[in-house]
Design a protein around this nucleic acid. Structure first.
Length: 369
DNA sequence: TCTGGGGTCCTAGGACCC
DNA sequence: TCTGGGGTCCTAGGACCC
């Protein structure tokens, strides 16, 4: 049981990328937010965090707390670009890299210790290279497994390096609130509290049958989490995109709407965004689901499965309209979303996808952005 | 302070088939 | 009378992650 798993977590990623692109933002309270009027903070700089700005806060609320906050419109192309450079740095050390999100990855250091020294040496090299080559800082957690490595990377932020030695882990877990574990969210925290469980130590000692009676299959996993046990391997993704399970887009409207014709126009736009991405991935989908959020925040979805997969905007839109026609709305709505699932990759439809691309080019679209 | 948008995985009930 | 059992697909909803 050695401390060989690294979790790399970029510091205030979106905000840091923005500072990198525009150094005059450095040291100022900044936050990145989505487009539109009813939007929330996605990431804020540490300067803004000191002033109380938090992820998921409305822009209005953040500005009240921090009137000189600079709110920047998210530009995901920049973040994807930086992410690719970071992952490339990690992969230059070892193929045992598992990207976990746009700004996080696991690295298995076992088997490369002779090349790079101890896991701490490796972590320092990684931090150094990412800073030199990308210009960003990250926090690294080192532990015997992924669960604990992820916990560790969050303990000293920003620009941290935290090692959890096997011998120190029981004492750490004894006091650790269960909600700090990746996979235990707010609802589960409340449920666990009703059983008298607040720390990982308590969770790890709890009788398994009581947990499974309450949580089903998850109960067993919860106990494992409490004990800090995790045997899942670091699994490098061989070809990223093939792993995608669904492709979706949704919009929160600037105001609540009741006009069904307007909703259909929005569905057309969403169909185009979903279709464009499906074509870029060279995939088609057998299932389309339409999500509606009422102004009272009640949210529901309706889906349909097709024997013939769709990928062209027109077909996606047709399917969306069929689903939509079967929905009765009884409140104004604030959000519409479409998601294409049951994806097929590559496949015999390639020639048709190319045909669709050509049509898009003729219409003036790029067809491959 | 009225609450984003991209996803993944799990559950549970019903239809359908053998 | 009093009604199998297993497998798979589909749908809807919910918890969770960044």
């Amino acid at each position: 049981l050695s401390e060989n798993i690294l979790h790399i977590d970029m510091d205030a990623f979106f905000a840091s990328v923005e500072e990198l692109c525009n150094p005059s933002l450095r040291g100022r309270p900044i936050a990145v937010a989505g487009p539109g009027v009813r939007t929330v903070i996605t990431t804020s700089s540490y300067e803004a965090r000191r002033r109380g700005v938090r992820t998921a806060m409305t822009v209005g609320a953040a500005l009240r707390l921090c009137p000189d906050l600079l709110v920047i419109r998210a530009d995901h192309r920049k973040y994807t670009h930086a992410s690719k450079k970071i992952m490339a740095v990690l992969e230059s050390f070892t193929p045992a890299v598992e990207p976990f999100s746009v700004d996080e990855a696991f690295v298995d250091a076992a088997g490369m210790l002779s090349l790079h020294g101890s896991p701490v040496d490796l972590a320092e090299k990684i931090k150094d290279r990412i800073y030199k080559e990308v210009g960003l800082t990250c926090s690294v957690g080192i532990a015997p497994n992924r669960l604990l490595a992820k916990l560790a990377s969050g303990l000293e932020k920003p620009n941290g390096l935290t090692v959890l030695k096997a011998s120190e882990i029981p004492a750490l877990l004894e006091r650790m609130p269960v909600g700090k574990i990746c996979g235990i969210g707010p609802k589960t925290v409340v449920e666990l509290k009703s059983l008298g469980i607040e720390t990982c130590g308590q969770l790890g000692r709890y009788p398994e049958h009581t947990l499974t009676a309450r949580f089903g299959v998850i109960g067993r996993i919860l106990k494992q989490m409490g004990m800090g046990a995790d045997s899942s391997p670091v699994t490098p993704m061989l070809s990223g995109i093939q792993d995608v399970k669904s492709v979706g887009h949704s919009v929160t409207l600037g105001r609540d709407i009741t006009d069904r014709a307007l909703m259909k126009r929005i569905l057309l736009t969403l169909s185009e965004m979903v279709g464009r991405r499906a074509r870029r991935y060279s995939c088609s989908g057998h299932r389309l689901s339409l999500t509606v959020r009422y102004n009272d925040f009640k949210t529901f979805s309706r889906q349909k499965t097709f024997s013939t997969p769709v990928w062209m905007t027109g077909r996606i839109y047709d399917a969306a309209c069929v689903i939509f026609s079967e929905i009765t709305l009884d409140h104004p709505i604030r959000l519409l979303g479409l998601s294409l699932g049951s994806l097929d990759f590559g496949s015999r439809q390639d020639s048709l996808i190319d045909l669709e691309r050509q049509r898009e080019c003729l219409r003036g679209g790029t067809g491959h952005d």
